[in-house]
Nucleic acid binder design. Structure first.
Lengths: 155, 155
DNA sequence: ATAACTGCAAAACATTTGCATACAG
DNA sequence: CTGTATGCAAATGTTTTGCAGTTAT
């Protein structure tokens, strides 16, 4: 999971700026603070983590603005949303995401990432059969990790 | 999507009864009403649909009991829970589910089902590499259906 | 009999909305 | 300037919880 270079980050900001302009929306500092925060994050974050994290950095951005901005970032595909089984959405930068999938431990809630090219072919085949224009997928595998430190182990 | 025979349904009820007994829980009529309602449903239902549906059938079962029972049914694997992207859980009988996956239209919210055996091999391979004991998976494909009547089409 | 379950209403939680104020274009 | 965005607080929608009364065992 490499980080973006300053140039790439600038490109991401430009993408957002262009998207906003095209849709007659304003490029406010708050929106770019939220964008940067997600692209800074190393993993999956939820809206409240972003809100609290920004507050602790001295950036006073309201929850409403965090949610508003997240929805804009989803629209222009700079950010991806996940639902890992509970009812709290998790977000990550589209750059980090770039089609990996998730392995979720039911005991300790750890989330690992993996990648398998066969999913692409399944996707294509299903698209054809069902006459669908597929935009994205989410494959989540749920189970028990065999780590020693795993908390809340059931059996 | 065939329906269960009366015998199979009785077996399902017995499974639930046994699970309850083993855990020192009571076999109340309400719990079996909820079980039957899910096994009667032809597709995915949410907790509120169950609650309202039962009310209209004259069964006065509280939301709290619906949720309570759903969690028990999840624990004993008679029911499966899905999160299709919004923050409302959908449930279906494990019998209906039996490892199919979902194709979700981003415009009209239609949910189709498909099945591909390659997912099993991906699952096995990932389990080995990451040393995980995998219990279940969820593969959701998101896109635009090409149906004529599709509502809210974006472009 | 008694411990667990139900129903109800209140609480908790994530997310959205309405409105007065602030500010980008 | 003007209309859009922000922050706040209130509203919404889903799920959970506490408790008095009910019921399975």
């Amino acid at each position: 999971m490499p980080s973006l270079t300053p140039d790439q980050l600038e490109e991401v900001r430009n993408t957002f700026r262009d998207f906003l302009k095209e849709h007659g929306l304003r490029s406010t500092p708050e929106r770019f603070v939220v964008l940067d925060a997600i692209y800074d994050a190393t993993g999956h974050v939820d809206a409240d983590e972003l809100y609290v994290g920004l507050k602790s950095l001295g950036r006073r951005i309201s929850r409403a603005t965090v949610y508003n901005t997240l929805n804009l970032l989803l629209e222009c595909d700079l950010v991806v949303r996940h639902q890992f089984g509970n009812n709290q959405a998790k977000y990550e930068s589209a750059y980090r995401y770039w089609q990996h999938d998730h392995l979720i431990c039911l005991d300790c809630q750890a989330v690992m990432e993996f990648c398998d090219p066969r999913i692409q072919s399944i996707q294509q085949m299903v698209a054809e059969i069902y006459r669908f224009n597929i935009k994205s997928h989410a494959l989540n595998l749920y189970g028990h990790c065999l780590r020693d430190g795993c908390a809340n182990r059931a059996q």
